[in-house]
């Protein structure tokens, strides 16, 4: 019996889809059987980030409404045979699906996959309610911005009300240099407010945008720092203890300064 994880944030544009794609790919790389579900009906883009856009024939709404069998709608990933995507409908509205239908779908998927990762739409309306129904646990994505943290807080409250307990936190797009200057909320500030366990911190990096546009998840890029961060999160989701990576960029000057003990620490 598999486990359904919903990736949610409340606020839009914080990196839910990127996170879903990377965690799914990372878990599939580690030989798990994974199904990614794009619950963002009407604004789908998980397929684009995975580079599977041109293979979509049937979608989630077709499955729910019985126009096709589940097998027909699942798209196999280009790179991993154990990774599947259930795409969202682009031409339908969010209320084309009900939470009960989603829960039923999740039940079916759980019998076939190790992990089902649901990409939740932004907002707290119908789409959100659909995405969290049938979820066993939640991963909250936030960025170090007051508005994103505020929305994450709201989402945690709503998840509690919906009886999805013990959410975990991913802080996305952290810029250590800005934190050091005091221009960005630091990790501890965010954890203090949200008071949920941290499962990973992903540094802000240009490589994310490049890989999203190319349809190649950054988690596969061995040299990329966000890729490393995602690989660590994957292992933590698998239940392993992985130390948090040092986010400070180690320039030569920086290393020298630390060596001589001049202002190396922030």
């Amino acid at each position: 019996m598999g486990e359904a994880i919903v990736i949610t944030s409340g606020k839009g544009g914080v990196g839910k889809t990127t996170t879903t794609a990377n965690l799914g790919t990372g878990l599939a790389h580690n030989k798990h059987k994974i199904c990614l579900v794009d619950a963002d009906i009407g604004l789908r883009n998980l397929d684009v980030v995975l580079g599977l856009e041109n293979r979509i024939v049937y979608d989630l709404v077709d499955v729910v409404e019985g126009r096709c069998r589940l097998r027909q709608a699942l798209i196999k990933d280009k790179r991993y045979d154990s990774l599947f995507l259930l795409p969202a409908a682009q031409t339908k509205e969010k209320d084309a699906v009900s939470p009960e239908q989603m829960a039923e779908l999740m039940g079916t998927l759980k019998s076939e996959f190790d992990f089902i990762i649901v990409d939740c739409p932004a907002g707290i309306e119908q789409g959100f309610k659909n995405a969290i129904s049938g979820a066993d646990r939640a991963v909250i994505v936030t960025t170090p911005e007051v508005s994103a943290v505020r929305d994450a807080d709201r989402i945690i409250g709503l998840l509690e009300a919906a009886e999805v307990y013990d959410p975990q936190l991913i802080i996305n797009r952290l810029r250590p240099d800005m934190v050091r200057r005091g221009d960005m909320m630091d990790i501890q500030d965010i954890i203090d407010i949200l008071a949920i366990p941290l499962v990973g911190v992903v540094p802000d990096d240009e490589s994310i945008i490049v890989s999203s546009n190319r349809g190649e998840p950054v988690v596969l890029d061995q040299r990329s720092r966000p890729g490393q961060a995602y690989r660590n999160i994957v292992r933590r989701l698998e239940g392993l203890e992985v130390p948090f990576m040092d986010l400070e960029q180690k320039t030569v000057m920086h290393r020298l300064r630390t060596l001589f003990g001049i202002g190396g620490k922030r």
Binding site: D151, D153, R154, G157, A195
Partner: peptide
């Protein structure tokens, strides 16, 4: 923890063992 969007209305005193977050 009382989170954003949640509200507690009560006739009497209120004691919260946890945080009361913004919003």
């Amino acid at each position: 923890t009382i989170r954003s969007g949640q509200s507690i209305h009560y006739s009497g005193n209120v004691v919260v063992m946890g945080d009361v977050n913004a919003g």
